[in-house]
Design a protein around this nucleic acid. Sequence first.
DNA 1: ATCCTGGTCT
DNA 2: AGACCAGGAT
Length: 282
Amino acid sequence: MIDVPYDERIPGFVTLVLKQGESHYRDFPWRHTRDPYAVLVSEIMLQQTQVARVLPYWERWLLDFPTLDALAAAPLEAILRAWQGLGYNRRAVALKRLAELLSQQPDGRPAVLPDDDAALRALPGVGPSTAAGVRAFAYGQPSVYLETNVRAVVLHELFADSTEVSDRELLPLLAQAAEFSVASGVEPHVWNCALLDYGAFLKSSRPNPSRRSAHHTRQTRFEGSKRQKRARLLRLVLEVPFVSSEEAARELGGDVEEAIQLLGELQAEGFVVTDGTGWRVN
DNA sequence: ATCCTGGTCT
DNA sequence: AGACCAGGAT
């Protein structure tokens, strides 16, 4: 972290965010649990996906796979089916791997999600934001949780006239604010909820302030993309038990070479396996 | 019909 | 720096 001088605006910023967070508070089911696994699942699902779409998936997921050990024991096929429609299917594969890693406890003890930043970030699919979210919302530990809604708040309040702002500039101020809120006796989950809820409000009421982040990028079109083709192939493999390369090619309306190439990539990422004559879910 | 959104990994 | 998914907004 860059060592920058203490910013005099921090106390006012924290007070304002807490007040705005209260005004725009959103009541999500994952805010009513401290189960680290349930919190982790919400964080992973929310990584790239809107809240409205995550809600039913999160509820269903915890019924189907109530614990890390249940997830570790479940077939990947069931896991990928439960993920269908959420997007970025690699997250489901990573979650399965994570569960398998943690459930390999001696004496068959229940799997435990770590609570420290380094151990969390060493897990597949867990980066800085997800680790910070789990630490605050499951374990009540102070964390610097920089994701898109939080970025919107910091950019709007502390970088109003700047463009191309990098996270390296935002992080020290967010860290100072987090520290101030803790010192003021505010629970880490209350502070981070306030950031998220105020950020979501800002994004809904004006052009997304996160566009002024240096890291903001525009997505390439989905129609006709490789992403779309991968999604179609995975869907096909989940629909029928065994898919030949020719069937896969027909699904894409393309050539067999392309289908084999894409399925090979899906295999390398752990989605599917082949026996040489066709493909099935790993 | 085209545009817009996003955290992690390579 | 660029790839990964999908649905809602415009």
